[in-house]
Design a protein around this nucleic acid. Sequence first.
DNA 1: CAGTGGTCTAGACCACTGG
DNA 2: CAGTGGTCTAGACCACTGC
Lengths: 254, 254
Amino acid sequence: MGLPALADGQGVATPAFSPLYQQIKSLILQSLQAGEWKPGDAIPSEMELAGRFRVSQGAVRKAIDELAAEHLLVRRQGKGTFVATHAEQHTQFRFLRLEPDSGDRASVGSAQRHIVQCRRLRAPVDIAHALGLRSGESVLQVRRVLSFQQQPTILEDIWLPGGPFKGLTASALTQDQGPMYALFESQFGVRMVRADEKIKAVAADSAAAAQLQVPDGAPLLSVERLAYTYNDVPMELRRGLYRTDHHHYHNQLS
Amino acid sequence: MGLPALADGQGVATPAFSPLYQQIKSLILQSLQAGEWKPGDAIPSEMELAGRFRVSQGAVRKAIDELAAEHLLVRRQGKGTFVATHAEQHTQFRFLRLEPDSGDRASVGSAQRHIVQCRRLRAPVDIAHALGLRSGESVLQVRRVLSFQQQPTILEDIWLPGGPFKGLTASALTQDQGPMYALFESQFGVRMVRADEKIKAVAADSAAAAQLQVPDGAPLLSVERLAYTYNDVPMELRRGLYRTDHHHYHNQLS
DNA sequence: CAGTGGTCTAGACCACTGG
DNA sequence: CAGTGGTCTAGACCACTGC
């Protein structure tokens, strides 16, 4: 018997069988989404959740296994299970795939950041469409340059929906030290969970060339990233131009 | 007690505790490596393996879970567990991240292939180093062009160690229809398991420009892929130039 | 030491496939 | 229908953390 409160999923037209652990997973996901546990917090122990949901520890365990595999939770033996965050050393810059040709992945943390622009405007159609807004709704645009070893390397436009990010200012961005996604978590309660990137090679136009200190027409990596929060809700569109003369985009295929 | 034949891992200086299922995983991996089960074959059932290794089904299950997560095995409910292969519709071109801007991922299967060159030579230092060979050892170089909708889009050099790929000829490559990695499996017993890619934006030199029918200096995506078989042994170095005017490199971050 | 996650077992039952 | 993978349970014990 076990769990009369949960759906057993026996429809007629669609069998739609849903295992117990999937339902548990959904419940945990809802709590994450609702902000019941904040990034960095410990969630209740497996035994406690098992009790709460009237389920064996094994079922809870399998649910957490999947959430951990998706990097929504982090398990630490002997300590507990924690809500993942971009604020930690280990998971910092998890979405940044650019690394120096020398291979030293650590140096990305010591990038210099320069905010070129930060303004609020009515969303152009393409931006609105990507973010699931109506065109004309309020959005934030942040343009910035990242430099590695004094060399400007990334020029990017970051587009954010105006509603969830109400109150974001250039000075907040300038003063903050850690990763931008960590700021989003602590100040706006928005956690980026996954992202899609589309990459092309393009020639630098004169504006980009000036910012990145390369000749007009120099080849640059164009990286368009759409980042999502919980539940596949798009929350950020980022359009970057990367110099790749001393860096490369690294990708693991498996 | 369960398994006296397996290491219990209790050293003195290094505890080096290794769970049972990890040891099972290693044993299965060895069988895969040794070619005891070929790509596409069914491996023994979980119960049978549990009996063979003197272990519970759960331990075998967890080992297979991990191998399936790494795409080395594929589970099919009601049928069995199978050795993964590049020869199937579903997993074909798993390592090719280029897709048309229109989004139609299916069209990559209908690419036209043209072998420009296929020769055997003594490995240049950089190639030898990447493939873990001594410089001067025999390697195969294959240069080819892939076209989508009549438009040449990818120009690539493929470097293979001469030993494992003895007997590979241009005509074999030309006549073959399916994915190249499927040919490697069936003809040479080499299965590509994972790969690393390093991506840059470059300007087309005149040779590349001619092959890809773009102007000299046009921006191209440079994709260098190092592909590995079982046990992290490098088996292929691929250097590609991608046109990205109508296609993009798609990457999922999570 | 108590509390956490991690491993392992044994057994029951369910869902899916194919003969 | 038998055989396979998939789910769920209950309980024992291990490894790790911090008080």
